[in-house]
Simulated assay, not measured.
Amino acid sequence: MSIAYLGLESARQLKNVRSLVFTFAVPLVMLLLFGGIYGASGAVDKVTGLPWIAVTTVQMAGYGGMMAALGQAFTIVTERNVGWNRQLRITALNGVGYMISKVAAALLVALISIIALIVVSVCVFHTTLTFGAWTMAALGLWLGVIPFAFISVLIGQFAKPNYAQPLFMVIFFGMAILGGLWVPLSVLPSWMTNVAQVVPSYWLNRLGQMGAHLSGDVLEPILVLLGWTVALGALIVWRYRRDAARQ
């Protein structure tokens, strides 16, 4: 049942052309804008030691991956509103299977967005990183997106249709800013930098940068993101079982 539902979810996500275009278009425009202004200068980021355009590409790819993962929240809210979740709870699909299918479908879309943005950066700006560095950057970003897929499921489970969008925007933009995906954290107040180290978007960005640099202690960001994933996963399964017990 879980495998069948996973296939259904993945196919449905890939058929949602409007969502795919939006997920890719916003970070693409930002990449082309910032890359067009500063990319030709060949400047190097003093913090990471990477070419500035490579840092920007990692940020925008992380932003696109996060957007793809979180965007599924609206689908889940709609499903709850029309009664689809109630139908699922009387099937053999359990809470873990439900969670995995939703998260896997979100990760599939996120992977497409991450790879597409990296390809555009290489083709348009001729960003000078090795194939291995881009591969590790994409892998780091993709793994870092996992907690956001869990957050999207949790938003979908709790949010009502009339305030799902405001809640999504607050979480999404807050994570983007605190993660340093829009502007470097160095230009923000020090207290925001301290808060940023708690949220998963900060570590999403860090994993991508470490991958691009092919160096750094990846254990810390992995442990932080794993902690977020386990805590969010437990909440999702608990909520699904709690709703099922009401039926």
Rank of each mutant, 00 (worst) to 15 (best):
N194I: 12
P189W: 00
L143W: 04
R89D: 06
L188Q: 07
G49V: 05
T229Q: 10
G179N: 03
L129H: 08
F172P: 03
A149V: 00
I53T: 13
N16V: 11
V198W: 06
V44E: 11
V224D: 14
Y163H: 13
S101Q: 00
I146K: 03
M175F: 09
Q13S: 12
V103W: 01
Q59A: 06
I222Q: 03
V170I: 12
Q72G: 12
F74T: 12
M99S: 09
Y63F: 12
P27Y: 11
L204M: 07
V145T: 12
G65F: 15
V55G: 15
G97Q: 11
L167A: 07
L185F: 03
L108R: 14
A110W: 09
K15G: 12
V21G: 10
P221R: 00
V44A: 11
G64H: 08
L154E: 14
I53V: 14
H213M: 12
V153T: 08
A11V: 04
A164W: 04
F22G: 14
G211E: 02
T23H: 03
M136D: 15
S10V: 09
T48E: 15
V183P: 01
W182A: 13
V187R: 01
M67G: 05
F74V: 09
G180S: 05
V199S: 04
Y240C: 05
V77F: 10
G174C: 11
V187L: 02
A137M: 06
K46P: 06
A106I: 03
G179R: 06
L33N: 00
V58W: 10
G156M: 00
L226A: 01
L214V: 00
I155H: 14
S101G: 01
R242V: 01
A104M: 07
V187G: 00
L181I: 14
L225I: 04
G95L: 05
L223E: 04
V120R: 00
I76D: 02
N162V: 06
A231E: 05
L33W: 06
F24T: 15
L181E: 11
T130H: 08
A11L: 10
F125A: 05
I118D: 07
Q209C: 09
A159Y: 10
L154N: 11
L111M: 13
G208K: 11
R12Y: 13
M30R: 14
V103G: 05
T56A: 11
E9I: 00
L223F: 04
S113C: 06
E220R: 13
V145Q: 11
I100R: 01
L20Q: 02
I171S: 15
A164L: 01
V58Y: 13
M67Q: 12
G71Y: 09
L178K: 04
I90T: 01
L88V: 00
G42I: 04
T57F: 06
N205K: 12
Y63S: 11
I90F: 03
S201W: 01
I177D: 08
D243L: 15
V122G: 13
T78C: 13
G35H: 02
P221H: 02
A116E: 15
F168P: 04
H213P: 08
V96H: 02
L139C: 07
W182Y: 12
V187Q: 03
G35K: 01
V29R: 06
P51H: 14
G140S: 13
T91Q: 10
W228Y: 10
V44R: 11
P147G: 00
V145W: 02
L207N: 13
M169F: 12
V124T: 05
R246C: 05
G62S: 02
E79L: 00
